[in-house]
Design a protein around this nucleic acid. Structure first.
Length: 284
DNA sequence: CACCATGTTCCTTG
DNA sequence: CCAAGGAACATGGT
């Protein structure tokens, strides 16, 4: 479940549950997600540490912890990859099948499960340095966006996935933002007109804000044992919940009628990822 | 068996 | 040095 809105919703959910909690034990079942941190390093840093804050940066969850000796704080970076989940469950409950890391918090256990193990749970913060501005932040201005796009001849869709240009948009919301802006995903980045850049800039923000708002109003089931709970809108067992599917205008809708003009939605491949768009509404 | 999947990172080529 | 393209990572669903 990972793009900016889903991570934002998860962070808002977890922050009040974690703040003030002390980590009493660390169980690493799939060390790969710690890379390059070693399991012993993680255990050493986390044992006895206390959660003091949790924020989102792009698609990362940044956990701020107070050291066990009380002297200073440090950061832990989490990333859900393609299939990651994070949630709390009662201490005695059985660990989910694909648990990568479990933290003993006393009565509860914090679980990071990740089927494909593309996610991260690490003390290494080097990945954050290469991130571009937050799409919903002040630094992401139309001027910045326009200037950045001028430097590339790649399709605009590919640039929206470039985390060094803007951080947090993924494949679904890239497609949705382009549809909302009525810009073709294949248009070379440097060929966008000023008006197209402005429309796309607004659409990116609008699509993300609406997704966060929507996720925020749904009652969530965060036990982690259900497949339809919360904002876990895709993947895992079961079908995508209707409530979410209706929100998507083009993503995963190839062959189905465009909700605006009824033309069949098209699927193409760009940079080895699927792109969905309406060939009539997004004709450039 | 084939192809597809919300993401990043590394390697190669130009 | 950079931009761009492709494979790799690992598992499961259809």
């Amino acid at each position: 479940m990972p793009e900016l809105p889903e991570v934002e919703i998860l962070v808002r959910h977890l922050a009040p549950l974690l703040k003030g909690k002390t980590i009493r034990g660390v169980e690493v079942r799939h060390a790969r997600v710690l890379r390059p941190t070693q399991p012993a390093q993680l255990s050493h840093a986390l044992n006895g540490a206390v959660f003091v804050n949790l924020i989102r940066r792009a698609k990362y969850l940044m956990f701020a912890l107070r050291r066990a000796d009380g002297k200073g704080t440090f950061l832990l970076a989490g990333h859900l990859g393609m299939t990651g989940r994070m949630f709390l469950q009662p201490a005695g409950a059985p660990l989910p099948r694909h648990t990568a890391v479990a933290l003993d918090l006393g009565r509860q256990r914090f679980i990071f499960e990740d089927t494909r193990r593309f996610g991260r749970f690490t003390l290494d913060l080097s990945a954050q340095r290469g991130l571009g501005p937050e799409p919903l932040g002040k630094e992401f201005t139309v001027e910045y966006f326009a200037a950045a796009l001028k430097r590339s001849s790649q399709g605009i869709k590919i640039k929206l996935l470039d985390q060094s240009l803007l951080a947090g948009v993924g494949n679904i919301y890239a497609c949705e933002a382009l549809f909302a802006a009525r810009v073709s995903p294949r248009l070379a980045a440097r060929k966008l007109t000023r008006d197209q850049v402005r429309r796309l800039w607004r659409s990116i923000r609008q699509v993300l804000v609406k997704a966060v708002e929507f996720g925020g109003t749904v009652s969530l089931d965060w036990t982690g044992r259900t497949n339809d709970g919360g904002v876990f809108y895709y993947g895992n067992a079961g079908s995508p919940p209707d409530f979410y599917e209706e929100r998507l205008q083009v993503y995963d809708r190839q062959g189905r009628p465009c909700r605006v003009c009824k033309a069949p939605v098209k699927r193409i491949v760009q940079a080895a990822r699927s792109t969905f768009y309406c060939p009539r509404c997004q004709r450039n």
